[in-house]
Simulated assay, not measured.
Amino acid sequence: MSAIVQQRSILRDRGNLSSRISDFLWKHPHVLLTILLAPPLLWLGVIYLGSLFALLLQSFFSIDDYSGLINYEFTLATYRQLLNEANFDIIVRTVSMAAIVTLVSAVIAFPIAYYAARYARGKWKVFFYLGVMLPLWSSYLVKIYAWKLILAKEGILTWLLTKLNLLWLLDAWLSLPVIGGNSLSVSYTGTFIVFVYVWMPFMILPIQAALERVPSNLIEASSDLGGTPQQTFRHVLFPLALPGIVAGSIFTFSLTLGDYIIPQIVGSSRLFIGQAVYAQQGTAGNIPLAAAFTVVPIMIMGFYLWMARRMGAFDAL
């Protein structure tokens, strides 16, 4: 009998304790918020920001040319190496490719997103989302290697152009300097095609979300006031959809800027920033130069995100 009484007393004490804790958290919601946010903020501060700070710190060191060891003295010599012709070409090449991929992705994605936002209904809406999201469900490497086979000299694209008697057009394109090569699979053109294909969903969805927020009566009012379709697009639709375009460009630009797998598998032997980082920290063992290379896209994306925020792009994410 005493054991039952003791057990009831323990349960009563536990109930009172949980009630007191619940009451305290209800009266002090900031304490509950602190408890909930502390673990993710701690992870963000220590793991993510801490690693970025360590990376930034490494970029101010240098490598000894004779011993190959890291010289732990603060210097800007590593950043001066980025201005060498070879390293600066890598930066320009990467930024140019990211900008072109972003621009072309926006041009292709806009009509697709516009149709989905303004006209697709019911099962067609579902079909649209499946069509956009389905490529994201397959393996990243599988998609790249599939495109390498498609763009190869013995691939299906060459076969199709041969059947259409248009192989001369491909040969003329591949003969162009810089963007050409022995085949599309070892050229900047092939790298560009794969970049656009892989990152296209990240451009379509934000634009589609922004276009769905555009009131239909604004477009109708523009037509009622005598505006042509071109004027309606330029003065009404495009400005309202611009935050979505900028939001999509954040994904496509940043992902292209830091990717090193696609240029490694499909493309020429000229390096991009991601490949340079991999080569410097792996093969060459030059950690400071690899860290300095990684600071470049961080600075570019920091400025880009600041501009995107001013344009209201985060509202369309």
Rank of each mutant, 00 (worst) to 15 (best):
P201M: 14
L136P: 09
W173K: 00
I204P: 06
T191K: 00
W199T: 15
V186P: 02
S185E: 15
P206I: 10
I179T: 08
L167K: 09
L136S: 11
T189K: 00
L157Q: 00
L167F: 12
K148T: 01
T158E: 06
L161W: 11
L160S: 07
L136A: 07
L166A: 15
S139I: 11
I193L: 15
Y140S: 01
T191R: 01
F202Q: 12
V194K: 02
Y145I: 11
V198W: 11
L149Q: 14
E154T: 11
I193P: 03
W137K: 03
G155N: 06
L174W: 07
W199P: 10
V194C: 08
V142D: 04
E212Y: 03
L184V: 09
L157F: 14
V196D: 01
A172T: 12
W173H: 15
I144G: 01
A210W: 02
L205N: 08
P177L: 05
Q208K: 11
P135D: 05
S138I: 11
L211Y: 02
T158N: 14
L176I: 05
Y145W: 13
Y197K: 09
L167R: 10
L170T: 00
N165S: 13
P135R: 13
L151V: 03
I150R: 02
M203Y: 05
I193D: 04
E212K: 13
V142Y: 15
L205F: 11
V194Q: 07
P201L: 13
K153E: 08
T162E: 11
L169Y: 03
T162N: 10
T189E: 02
I144V: 15
V178A: 03
A172G: 14
S139A: 04
L184M: 14
S187I: 03
L184K: 07
S183T: 11
L134V: 15
K143W: 14
F202P: 12
S185P: 12
L151K: 04
A210L: 06
L205Q: 09
L176W: 10
Y188P: 00
D171I: 00
G155C: 08
G190I: 01
S187K: 05
L174I: 06
G181E: 07
I156S: 09
I207S: 05
S175R: 06
V196H: 01
F202I: 11
L176N: 03
F202D: 09
M133I: 15
M133N: 11
W159H: 06
L151H: 04
L141S: 05
F192Y: 11
L160I: 13
L211W: 03
T162A: 01
Y140R: 03
L184C: 13
Y140Q: 00
S187W: 12
S139Y: 14
L211P: 06
T191E: 11
V196W: 00
T162Q: 07
E212T: 13
M133Q: 09
Y188H: 12
T191D: 02
L149E: 10
G190L: 03
L174T: 08
M203A: 10
T158H: 07
W199C: 08
L149P: 01
S183L: 05
Y145D: 06
V194W: 10
S187Y: 14
I204F: 09
K153F: 04
S183V: 04
V186D: 13
L161Y: 12
M203G: 08
